[in-house]
Design a protein around this nucleic acid. Structure first.
Lengths: 351, 351
DNA sequence: AAGTAAAAATTAAACGTTTAATATTGTGCA
DNA sequence: TGCACAATATTAAACGTTTAATTTTTACTT
C-alpha cells in the first residue's frame, strides 16, 4: 500500500507538505495541493491510521463489549451505538464475549468467564481504544472488570450497584407505570401481575411503576394480586390460575414471554385474552405482535440506550462535565397498544 | 499509560531486552526475565498494539461490514465470526452500515448508500484491517465495493454473481429438499409452494430443492402448485386460497413469515394447520416456535456461516491454497420437525 | 534594486514498538 | 592465564505518520 513518502516523492515535495495537505492545514499552494490530491487518487492512497494514531495518540475507536450477540436486546443497542459513533467518526472494536449457552430458548451464564473478560479488556486497551461500552453486562461479568481502567467506560442496559461507571438504563418504573395506567384507563381495577425473577432490578422497578399507577388512581395495592414469575413462559402459564382465583380482570406480565404463557392457559380455559381477560406484556419481542390477539406491551428503547451510552462516553472523552443525571440515565419506554387490553365489560366488576 | 521504555528504565535494562522478554524470545536470563515481568504487573503495562502493528505490519484485525445489525439473521452470523476470530486471536472492527429503514416489520433499502459504503471501506483499510467480511450484503451494496481492494474479502450469507469474492451461503436447495422430503415421507403428494420474491437466489434454490424432492420420489412436478409470494406474511395469507383450490394437502412456505399468513387464513376457514392441511416454513424464526401448532421448518446455519467465512478469510491471510469448493461454500441447514406436518389422513387423497 | 513580510516548503524529531547487527559478560577448558 | 564460545544485553534503524521549528521562495513596498 502506498505511503505518504511515495506520494511525496512522486510529487517532488516533502512528506510534511503532503501531510499538511491531507489534513487540510494551511500553507500549501493550490497548485501543489491539486497535484498531491491527484496522486492520492491515482495511487488509491489511504493514510495509515495506525501510524497516525501512534503519533497523535488518539485512536478514534471505542471498544464495545457484549455478553452475547444473540440475545434479543443486544443488536438494537449496538445499532444505536454505531449510529452515534458514525456521526462522531469513532470506530467500533467489537468484543462478543459469548458468555451464554442457549438451552431451550433460555440462556445460561457460562462459569469459566473471569479470565475471558479480563483478557478481552486487556486486548482492547492494548489496541488503544479511547473508551469502553459494556452492553447488557451481567452483574457477574462486572466483577471481572479491573477497578482501575486507563480509559472511561459506560454501561448500556445494565445496572451496576457500585456505580463507579455511568450507566444508561431503561426507565422500567415509567414503562410499567404507563402500561398499567393504560389498563386503569380501560376501567380495570383488579390488575394481577406476573413478575420476573425476584432479585432482578428490572423486576423491582416494574413493580414500583405498577404500584405508582395504582396509587395515583387511588386503587388499593393488593399483594395477593402479585404472582412471582421467573421471566419464562411457563411461569406465566402457571400464574394465570392463581390470579384468576383472585378474580382479576387484567394481568400485567413483566415480559412478553410470560404473557404468551398466560395466553396459552386462557385458551385452555376457553377464555379469550383481550375480551374475557385483558393481558399486557413488556419488552415488545417480535413474536408478541403475532399473538392472537396481538399483545399490548412496552417497547424497550434499546436503540436509544445504545445511542445515549455512546453520547455519554464521547462526552467523557471530550472531558465535558457530566451532569449528575448522567450517572444513571433512565431512558423512557413507549407503550405499544394493540388488542389485548380492552375496556372492562358491563359492570359485573365493582371494585 | 506505561510504555516499554519505562519498564526498561525501571528495570535498568534496554528496551530491546524488554521487548524480547515480552515476546518470549530467547536470550534473556531468567533473572531479568522475572524482574521485567514483575514490573509489567506492577505498572499494569499493556504493550501498545498500535505501535507494534506499525512495525510488524499486521494488525490482527478484520473488518466486518453488516448491512444492518437489527436484521434477524445478522447477529448469529456475527456471533459465528467472533467465535472463530477469538480462536485465531483476530479482532473485529465492526461497521454497521444501517442501510435499511424498518417500516411495518419490513426493511427497505436506503437509496443514499453508495458514498457510505465506499467511505466505510476506506476507513477500514486505513485502519489496516487484514481482511474484510461482508455479511448478508445486498446486491446493490456489492456494487459500491471497489473492484480492487488491497486486502482479501469474503461474503457471508450473500451471493455475488461476479464471484470475485468467495462466499459462504446457505445450502437452500438442500434445505428445501429436506423439508419437502419430510412432507413426502408423511404421505403428501400434492404439495403446494408459496415462494419468495421471484428474482431472489434463495427462492430459486429452494424451488430447485422442492423439485428434486419430487423428482426423486417420482412425483410429477405441477406448476399449478407454485404460488408466487414475496416473503411477507400477507402473501402467505393470499396464497392459501389459491393452493386450496388446487386441492393440495400440504403447503411449503419459503419462510416462516408467510407460513404465519397461511395459518391465519386456515384458521379463518376453520382448517387446522397440521391436521387438515400440513404446513412447513423455512428460516426458523423465533416466533414460529410459538405458532399453534408449532411450525416445522428449516433452521438456517447462521452461526456456522459466520464461522466458516472467518475460517476462509484467515486461510486467505495465511496464503493457504483455497480449494475450488471454497469459492462458493454451501452450508447445510437442518430440519426442525415440530407439529405442523402430519401424516396424511385416511385416503380421500389419491394422487 | 533592496528590503521585508507573507507564503510555501522543508527538516528533523517524535510516537512505541520490533529486530538485525553488535557488543559485553560469563563459563569451561587447555 | 588466556581463549573460544555461549549466553546476555545493547544499539540503532525502521514502521508511517504529525508537527514544531526552520528555511526558502515569492510578492510587494519604497
Amino acid at each position: 500500500m502506498a505511503t505518504i513518502k511515495e506520494i511525496a516523492r512522486e510529487c517532488g515535495v516533502s512528506v510534511a507538505t503532503v501531510s499538511n495537505i491531507l489534513n487540510h492545514k494551511p500553507g500549501a499552494s493550490d497548485e501543489t495541493r491539486k497535484r498531491v490530491m491527484e496522486k492520492v487518487k491515482e495511487l488509491n492512497y489511504h493514510p495509515n491510521t495506525i501510524a497516525r494514531n501512534l503519533k497523535t495518540k488518539n485512536s478514534r475507536s471505542i471498544g464495545v463489549i457484549v455478553e452475547d450477540m444473540t440475545i434479543f436486546s443486544i443488536p438494537d443497542i449496538v445499532d444505536g451505538i454505531t449510529e452515534h459513533c458514525e456521526e462522531e467518526k469513532y470506530q467500533i472494536l467489537l468484543i462478543n464475549l459469548r458468555l451464554y449457552k442457549k438451552y431451550n430458548d433460555t440462556y445460561y451464564h457460562r462459569d469459566d468467564f473471569y479470565p475471558i473478560v479480563r483478557d478481552e479488556i486487556g486486548e482492547l486497551i492494548a489496541k488503544q481504544v479511547e473508551g469502553i461500552i459494556y452492553v447488557a453486562a451481567h452483574e457477574r461479568t462486572l466483577k471481572c472488570i479491573p477497578e482501575t481502567l486507563p480509559v472511561p467506560a459506560v454501561m448500556a442496559y445494565g445496572y451496576t450497584r457500585s456505580a463507579k461507571v455511568p450507566s444508561v438504563v431503561v426507565d422500567d418504573e415509567d414503562g410499567a407505570y404507563q402500561i398499567v395506567q393504560h389498563m386503569i384507563d380501560q376501567g380495570h381495577r383488579r390488575i394481577g401481575v406476573i413478575t420476573g425473577k425476584r432479585d432482578s432490578p428490572h423486576m423491582q422497578d416494574r413493580l414500583l411503576g405498577y404500584q405508582r399507577a395504582l396509587f395515583e388512581n387511588q386503587i388499593l395495592y393488593n399483594p395477593e394480586y402479585i404472582c412471582t414469575g421467573d421471566w419464562f413462559r411457563d411461569s406465566g402459564y402457571a400464574g394465570t390460575d392463581l390470579l384468576l382465583k383472585k378474580n382479576v380482570t387484567a394481568i400485567f406480565c413483566m415480559n412478553d414471554l410470560m404473557a404468551g404463557g398466560v395466553y396459552d392457559r386462557l385458551e385452555e380455559l376457553n377464555l379469550r385474552p383481550g375480551r374475557d381477560i385483558s393481558v399486557a406484556g413488556y419488552d415488545n419481542r417480535e413474536l408478541s405482535g403475532y399473538y392472537k390477539p396481538p399483545l399490548s406491551t412496552i417497547t424497550l428503547p434499546l436503540h436509544d440506550i445504545g445511542y445515549e451510552a455512546s453520547e455519554i462516553i464521547i462526552r467523557m472523552l471530550r472531558r465535558e462535565e457530566l451532569g449528575l443525571q448522567d450517572n444513571i440515565r433512565k431512558v423512557k419506554c413507549y407503550p405499544l397498544i394493540r388488542k389485548s387490553v380492552s375496556a372492562i365489560q358491563k359492570s359485573g366488576t365493582a371494585v
